[in-house]
Amino acid sequence: MRNLNFNHLRYFWAVAHEGSLTRAAAQMNLSQSALSVQIQKLEHQVGHQLFDRVGRKLVLNEAGQIALDYADTVFKAGDELLSTLRGRPIDSRQVLRVGALTTLSRNFQLEFLRPLVGRPDVELIVRSGNMRDLLAQLEMHALDVVLANKPAQREARSPFRNHLLNEQPVSLVGRPRTGKAMFRFPEDLRTEPLLLPSLDSDIRVAFDRVLELANIMPIILAEVDDMAMLRLLAREREGVTLVPPIVVRDELDAGILVEHCRIPEVTENFYAIVTKRRFPNQLLSGLLNDDAEPPSQ
């Protein structure tokens, strides 16, 4: 195999970052046809198509995203060479792109990423969003993994794989009950105000079923779809809050909140959602630890 033609790589790098042949050609003072030929030559040399055409847009495919990561590294190395010789060295780092549901526990996200936090050779990019947008980014290889508390739907042509990372109990927590009797479940829920996750939450659906079987009509103070906000309200308001204890772990450790009881047969599952790739991110492979996890769902 011949050595990589770095001119071809530079042309690809410009198109990938511009997202358009037209803009990249104008930037590099080339015709679109000439630029297209250079991209084709690079694709021929590496043995993979690097872009998919979606309408009038060029979208990086998996091989293209890998090529762009390497191209970024190559051209960054030139900057590092100049910086080093000028006495201002820059460290090279690996990148892991993580998507997380906006409603997902921040404590869980931190636990998952903890092995990489603070490593000088690793750059973590964490983006929050809804499931639909995050999965779209994952499918386009703009993310390496999506963290969620529900699996991605599996269909015949679905590219997604769900890794069950953890299963957490769900509890009723609240401020210490100074001068009050011990909390009785489910009887006290007839009179005790509740802070609950929204109806979009799987644990809310399961909890409502528990109350229905107990013939209890709850007094609902608030329904919140953001676990961080639910955590803050649990600290500030009277009543009890339905959450996985990991969400309020710091408050429980500090005694600001106490765990009144765990809800039988109600749990929250945490998933890492990935796509099958020919070029997996090695940082992610280390976090998933496939040999130790339950089978993909």
Rank of each mutant, 00 (worst) to 15 (best):
P120Q: 09
D291L: 12
D291R: 12
P169C: 03
D188Q: 09
V37M: 07
Q168D: 14
M140A: 12
G174N: 04
L213K: 14
T275G: 04
V126Y: 03
Q297W: 12
Q137I: 01
G78L: 13
E155Y: 12
D226N: 08
E268M: 01
L233E: 10
A148M: 09
P245Y: 02
A142E: 14
G78H: 13
V210F: 01
V117G: 04
A254K: 11
T267V: 13
L288S: 08
R10G: 06
N5K: 05
S105C: 09
V122L: 07
R119D: 15
Q32R: 14
L4V: 13
R53F: 07
T84S: 13
E268Y: 01
I246L: 09
E268S: 06
D253N: 11
R177T: 06
R235Q: 13
P176G: 03
R93F: 10
M229S: 14
D72N: 12
L189T: 06
R235E: 14
M229G: 05
G99Y: 01
V145L: 03
D208L: 04
L113A: 03
V59A: 07
I39W: 00
M28F: 03
T275F: 03
E155L: 14
V173Y: 00
R209D: 13
Q65T: 11
L50S: 02
G64T: 10
M227K: 02
D225W: 08
F112T: 00
D226F: 08
Q282R: 15
D144H: 06
D200L: 15
S36P: 01
M227Q: 15
A71T: 02
K57H: 15
M217Y: 09
T178D: 10
V98Q: 01
L143Q: 01
R127N: 12
A67E: 06
F207E: 00
A214D: 10
E43R: 06
V170I: 11
D200F: 04
D253G: 04
M140I: 09
R114W: 13
P193G: 03
F183K: 05
E155A: 04
V46N: 01
V205A: 14
S20C: 11
E293G: 11
R53I: 13
